[in-house]
Amino acid sequence: MNSRGVILAYPRTKGMLLVIIAATFWGVSGTVAQYLFHQQGFSTSWLVVTRLIFSGVGLLLFSQTVGNQNIWTIWKNKQDVVKLIVFGIFGMFGVQFTYFAAIEHGNAATATVLQYLAPVIIAGYLTIRGKKLPTKHEGLAILFALLGTFLLVTQGNIHSLSITFPALFWGILSAFSLAFYTLYPRDLLSSWGSLITVGWGMTVGGISFSFIHPPWVFQGRWSLPSFLAVIFVVIFGTLIAFFCYMESMKYIKASEASLLACVEPLSAAFISVAWLHVSFGVAEWIGSFLIIATIFILSAVKK
């Protein structure tokens, strides 16, 4: 490859590395959250509220100082204010709480893979809204998703669940929440950009739930490892991960970024097995890869 080819290839490589870093941080942060829930006695509500408020304020400060954006203008538009509140409570808080609840009642590996059913849910919703039959790609993706979920939660045994019912319930609800989180803020994103939309969404979601579970009402055991784990979830698993993902869009296509983000459930599974000794058999691995494969299948659809 000549020097010009190297120059052209480097930005693309940089973009791919940024996505992989972001997805890895997301996956590892789920496993770290599992450590906080199962071994340090932390509650889902406290961790979600703390993560949302600190991460949301951090993104807004970054947008205001580094991005030179006016973060307050969005509150002057009444329609966008309503959309932002709905997105913050039902989208941002919803997807965070259901995901962490699935981890608390199960494990990070299963919770993350179940959440990746969201693209199939989105495809199904758009098919129903468009009043049309699923395409071959969509039908195959749905089949893979159903089979993958079956193997993941039953280990191939139809007479028993390999995970608890609450873990399955919150995991499936997390996928629906992620689908809503993905589809709903389209107008907000086009008008205000991702940093302001997500920053305020996190802040609104965190503050709203603070009236139900204040962040100063704490449950768990503080130690140096648990303190570092919380820092990792907030800083690396949210702020840095989100920044890397959005920065990657400058160098690669959004469709490519979404495919590379499949590293997230894989990293969550590997770290859970290696660090927390989560039992993950052949059936679970096959089910996980079938669910992840749906993203590659759906990416082949042109529209």
Results as ranks from 00 to 15, higher is better:
residue 1 M to S: 15
residue 1 M to E: 09
residue 2 N to D: 15
residue 5 G to Q: 15
residue 7 I to T: 06
residue 12 R to Y: 12
residue 14 K to C: 11
residue 17 L to K: 07
residue 19 V to C: 08
residue 29 S to E: 10
residue 36 L to P: 11
residue 37 F to W: 10
residue 37 F to N: 04
residue 43 S to A: 14
residue 47 L to S: 12
residue 48 V to R: 03
residue 50 T to H: 11
residue 51 R to S: 11
residue 56 G to I: 03
residue 57 V to K: 00
residue 57 V to D: 06
residue 57 V to N: 08
residue 62 F to E: 04
residue 62 F to H: 12
residue 64 Q to D: 14
residue 65 T to P: 05
residue 66 V to L: 02
residue 67 G to P: 04
residue 68 N to P: 09
residue 70 N to A: 10
residue 75 W to I: 08
residue 77 N to F: 11
residue 83 K to V: 04
residue 83 K to D: 13
residue 83 K to H: 13
residue 84 L to N: 09
residue 99 Y to Q: 12
residue 100 F to S: 04
residue 102 A to R: 08
residue 102 A to H: 04
residue 102 A to Q: 08
residue 103 I to G: 00
residue 104 E to K: 05
residue 109 A to K: 12
residue 109 A to I: 13
residue 113 V to P: 05
residue 117 L to V: 01
residue 119 P to L: 09
residue 120 V to Q: 00
residue 120 V to C: 03
residue 126 L to F: 06
residue 127 T to C: 05
residue 128 I to Q: 10
residue 130 G to P: 06
residue 131 K to C: 09
residue 137 H to E: 12
residue 137 H to G: 05
residue 141 A to P: 00
residue 144 F to C: 02
residue 146 L to K: 07
residue 147 L to F: 02
residue 148 G to N: 01
residue 148 G to E: 02
residue 149 T to Y: 01
residue 149 T to I: 01
residue 151 L to A: 03
residue 153 V to F: 08
residue 157 N to Q: 08
residue 158 I to Y: 12
residue 161 L to T: 04
residue 162 S to L: 07
residue 162 S to W: 12
residue 163 I to Y: 02
residue 164 T to C: 07
residue 168 L to Y: 13
residue 171 G to K: 04
residue 172 I to R: 02
residue 173 L to M: 15
residue 175 A to F: 09
residue 176 F to I: 15
residue 180 F to R: 07
residue 182 T to G: 11
residue 183 L to F: 06
residue 184 Y to Q: 03
residue 191 S to H: 15
residue 195 L to Q: 05
residue 200 W to T: 00
residue 202 M to V: 05
residue 207 I to K: 03
residue 207 I to R: 01
residue 209 F to M: 09
residue 212 I to Q: 04
residue 216 W to G: 14
residue 218 F to P: 06
residue 219 Q to D: 14
residue 221 R to P: 07
residue 223 S to C: 11
residue 226 S to R: 06
residue 227 F to I: 14
residue 227 F to Y: 08
residue 227 F to P: 03
residue 229 A to R: 08
residue 232 F to H: 03
residue 234 V to Y: 10
residue 236 F to H: 07
residue 236 F to Q: 07
residue 239 L to Y: 07
residue 239 L to S: 07
residue 239 L to V: 10
residue 241 A to H: 10
residue 242 F to P: 01
residue 243 F to G: 05
residue 245 Y to I: 06
residue 248 S to V: 00
residue 249 M to K: 13
residue 249 M to P: 03
residue 253 K to H: 15
residue 255 S to Q: 13
residue 256 E to W: 13
residue 257 A to N: 04
residue 257 A to F: 02
residue 259 L to W: 00
residue 259 L to R: 03
residue 261 A to Q: 11
residue 261 A to H: 08
residue 262 C to P: 08
residue 264 E to Y: 08
residue 265 P to W: 13
residue 265 P to S: 11
residue 272 S to E: 01
residue 273 V to P: 10
residue 275 W to V: 08
residue 277 H to Q: 13
residue 278 V to M: 04
residue 280 F to P: 00
residue 280 F to K: 02
residue 284 E to S: 11
residue 288 S to L: 09
residue 289 F to I: 12
residue 291 I to D: 00
residue 292 I to Y: 01
residue 295 I to K: 01
residue 298 L to A: 00
residue 299 S to R: 11
residue 301 V to H: 08
residue 302 K to N: 14
